[in-house]
Amino acid sequence: MARAATPAAARLLRAALLLLVLVAAGRHAAGAPVVTELRCQCLQTVQGIHLKNIQSVKVTPPGPHCGQTEVIATLKTGQEVCLNPEAPMVKKIINKMLNKDSAN
């Protein structure tokens, strides 16, 4: 005798089937760009941080994933911090990091 599925189990089954359909449809989308993140990474930014605390800086230009330039600094502690790309201090940090990289 078959048992009726509970409402929670039925919702879970529907969600799993929907996910399966979406994954299968995505595999057939020819020429679709591969984007690891589909949204902006930086929801909040800081105006600047002392250069001695920064290990590296990653600048991501605007694109289909996000309409704004994002500046993400990785600190020597491993923490990532989003910087305001328009802040004068951040512009100086980017220039110093670029000059440091080109000097090597």
Rank of each mutant, 00 (worst) to 15 (best):
Leu22Met: 04
Glu37Trp: 10
Lys58Arg: 15
Lys100Arg: 15
Gly67His: 13
Leu18Phe: 02
Pro85Arg: 02
Ala32Glu: 11
Leu20Tyr: 09
Gln41Trp: 10
His28Ala: 10
Val21Ala: 09
Ala29Ile: 07
Val71Ile: 06
Gln44Pro: 03
Val81Asp: 02
Pro7His: 06
Lys100Gly: 10
Glu70Leu: 04
Val90Gly: 03
Lys92Met: 11
Ile72Ala: 10
Ile54Arg: 04
Glu80Ala: 09
Leu19Pro: 08
Thr77Glu: 03
Ala29Glu: 07
Ala15Gly: 05
Ala10Met: 10
Lys91Ala: 05
Ala9Leu: 04
Val21Pro: 03
Lys100Ala: 14
His50Trp: 00
Lys100Glu: 14
Val57Lys: 05
Leu51Asn: 10
Ala9Ser: 04
Ala8Pro: 06
Ile72Thr: 13
Lys76Asp: 08
Gln47Asp: 12
Val81Gln: 10
Leu98Pro: 00
Val90Glu: 07
Pro33Tyr: 04
Ala29Val: 09
Gln79Phe: 07
Gly48Tyr: 01
Pro62Phe: 11
Asn95Gln: 13
His28Tyr: 13
Gly67Phe: 14
Thr45Ser: 04
Thr45His: 01
Gln47Pro: 00
Ala5Gly: 13
Ser102Glu: 14
His65Ile: 10
Pro7Lys: 09
Thr69Gly: 04
Pro62Gln: 08
Ile72Lys: 15
Leu38Met: 10
Val57Arg: 04
Pro85Phe: 00
Glu80Gly: 07
Val35Thr: 13
Gln79Leu: 03
Ile72Gln: 14
Ala5Asp: 14
Lys96Gly: 12
Thr6Ser: 13
Met89His: 14
Glu70Asp: 02
Pro88Phe: 02
Gln44Arg: 10
His50Cys: 06
Pro64Ser: 08
Leu12Phe: 05
Ala24Val: 10
